[in-house]
């Protein structure tokens, strides 16, 4: 077995073990904070409720990197096509994290709700081959304060 294949196997095992561990921990943290911030409402609706509000643009971003195992699985998947389920959970984590950070930003301003929430996903380092592949998610909206 050539050396580079052994390296691939070792990195994939490391990536799987640590990646899954980190993912489970991250989801737990996301769920906890989602409950915590549940009172701050978010809407992608453009029109704010009637009344006189103070407004502020709030946002939160996160850059997540794909672990080696997921990248390998996605690479194999690319050969035959189909659903790349390993990336679904990654993007789900990133989106929810970005929204939570936006909420944290709004909470520091004592906002009641965030209107017109928009989400932006960008693969910021679309490198060749083994270059870092990571995704940025940015969530932003208009926070309404009384």
């Amino acid at each position: 077995m050539p050396i580079e294949l052994i390296v691939v196997v070792v990195l994939a095992v490391l990536g799987y073990v640590f990646g899954q561990l980190a993912e489970r921990r991250h989801f737990a943290s996301i769920r906890r904070r989602e409950r915590e911030y549940a009172e701050l409402l978010t809407f992608s609706e453009r029109r704010p409720p009637p009344g006189r509000w103070q407004t502020a643009l709030v946002g939160g971003n996160v850059v997540v990197s794909v672990d080696y195992f997921k990248r390998l699985a996605a690479g194999l998947r690319a050969l035959i096509g189909g659903r790349v389920s390993v990336y679904e959970s990654l993007l789900e984590r990133a989106r929810r994290e970005a929204i939570l950070r936006m909420k944290e930003d709004a909470l520091t301003r004592n906002a009641v709700m965030i209107m017109c929430v928009r989400l932006e996903t960008a693969s910021i380092t679309k490198g060749k081959g083994d270059q870092i592949s990571s995704v940025e998610v940015y969530a932003y909206g208009t926070a309404l304060m009384r």
Partner: peptide, 9 residues
């Protein structure tokens, strides 16, 4: 991070 995954702070 590219091996283990996670946030690139």
């Amino acid at each position: 991070k590219n091996i283990f995954g996670g946030e690139l702070t």
